[in-house]
């Protein structure tokens, strides 16, 4: 027993010496053999990438095209059907085909990390993925949310019978995205966690694989989506909060044409997202 212990001790001493001498990894405790039978070393098994490296450009182009189409459909054609078909296409491509990453929502964190961390450099494609929807929102409103975002699309498609959320509740819950945005920026800036990506509720559905708590959150949100229009977008999405700020001052925006409006107020009830507020009269203002 003691002899074995001595062997172990010697081995440990040798190991420690080797570690000190050769930067740990370069240890060749057992030198590679010279084969007398002429045996050839097999090639290192390196698999190709899942998506070819030029695909990032395709994604950026697809995003730009989607935004342009969404703008045209909502501002020119004013067609809900067209927007819906665009959303389906986006859901298939950005959601189920791409499997979610990198999306504009998550890209907030990449941009933050790039600004905060000197070691992290930002891929060009991510810059475009972050900035394109913001630029479009400054020009035309949230056309990204309406027709291009796969997370919005999946909620839109399961919406059966929208209930009206009371205005006060909607206003209170509407603050959550800003808190979430702040938390996401803080966590990304400290390089601790990309919380928006880890808790992306629908990415598990897009990939048909994912961890359980997030899948449960996604399931609950999808069930809620059947009677409350787009709960994630309205009450959680941090990128939606950012685009909402931009959209408020958008250059051109979907509007109710004042000259044609007869003030029937049917639209207030019809909007599944509670986006159309009662008109303020001059006395109110």
């Amino acid at each position: 027993m003691s002899s074995r212990r001595r062997v172990v001790l010697v081995a440990m001493a040798l190991l420690a010496a080797a570690v000190c001498a050769a930067d740990a990894w370069a240890i060749e405790r057992f030198p590679p053999p010279d084969f007398y039978s002429g045996h050839q070393l097999p090639e290192l098994d390196q698999r190709p990438l899942r998506l070819p490296p030029w695909m990032d450009r395709v994604h950026v182009a697809a995003l730009a095209t989607g935004l342009a189409l969404s703008t045209w459909f909502s501002l020119r054609l004013r067609s809900r059907t067209a927007i819906r078909w665009l959303a389906v296409a986006s859901l298939v491509y950005f959601g189920f085909y791409l499997g979610g990453c990198v999306c504009p929502i998550g890209s907030i964190q990449n941009v933050t990390l790039a600004l905060a961390d000197a070691d992290y450099t930002l891929p060009v494609s991510v810059v475009f993925i972050f900035a394109l929807p913001v630029v479009f929102a400054l020009l035309f409103g949230r056309v990204f949310c309406s027709g291009v975002c796969p997370l919005g699309a999946i909620q839109d498609l399961v919406l059966i019978r929208p209930l009206r959320v009371p205005l006060w509740l909607q206003s209170v819950l509407g603050l959550v995205p800003f808190v979430y945005l702040g938390a996401a920026i803080l966590m990304a800036a400290t390089d601790s966690f990309f919380i928006v990506c880890r808790w992306d509720p629908f990415v598990g559905f897009f990939r048909l694989d994912g961890n359980l708590p997030v899948m449960i959150l996604g399931g609950v949100l999808l069930i809620v989506s059947t009677f409350v229009g787009r709960p994630y977008c309205r009450f959680l999405c941090p990128y939606g909060a950012l685009l909402g700020l931009c959209s408020r001052v958008a250059w051109k925006h979907v509007t109710i044409t004042p000259d044609e409006c007869v003030n029937c107020r049917l639209c207030e009830d019809a909007c599944p997202f509670g986006a159309i507020r009662p008109a303020t009269t001059e006395e109110d203002a």
Binding site: A114, L115, T121, L122, V124, A131, L138, C246
Partner: peptide, 28 residues
């Protein structure tokens, strides 16, 4: 609205310029 749009635009451009120094061509 124009002023707010301009300010937001400048802000976005500022972030863009700041981020531009930290950009690389290839994806991660």
């Amino acid at each position: 609205g124009g002023i707010a749009r301009g300010l937001l635009g400048v802000g976005v451009a500022g972030v863009g310029v700041a981020a531009a120094g930290r950009v690389r061509a290839k994806d991660d």
